[in-house]
Amino acid sequence: MTTSERADPSRSVVLETAVRLVFHTVLVFGVYLLFAGHNQPGGGFVGGLVAGCAFVLRYAVTGREGIGRAVPVDPVLPLGAGLLLAGVTGAAAWLLDGQFLESGKVELDLPVLGVVKATSALPFDTGVFLVVVGLVLLVLRTLGAEAEQ
């Protein structure tokens, strides 16, 4: 650690270490909520918010640049892709002769996981998840730019 870094009053070693510890846990919990959402509390929106919180924590430590390193894509990318995914999932019901947004499900017998039930609500929720995460990243990038000046 150089002298200039130690002298920087805005850095907090406790916060940095704590965030480094919890960052991935929070991220994974967000993804867990996304998958749990169909039959239990959770879902794409909440999962996205929790995953977004992980990035907010990281932002508190590393600032805008650190977020840029952690997610090296333009935040509008997940936002647009998520909206597209959600919309296409809703419209896909038409191809299977259903109403718009009608949900379909398949049950798969996978080798390790056992019987897994997958519904078309999952890609829709994933879309919502991506939109929320993209939005959080966008807010951090644009509003964060103002705050750091």
Binding site: D74, V76, L79, L84, G87
Partner: peptide, 24 residues
């Protein structure tokens, strides 16, 4: 016509998503 009814809502939303991706 049943397929047509949600289209005025769905089409612009999908196009909006595409436009977000095509921002440049």
């Amino acid at each position: 016509t049943r397929v047509l009814v949600p289209l005025p809502v769905v089409l612009p939303l999908l196009a909006a998503a595409l436009n977000v991706l095509l921002v440049r």
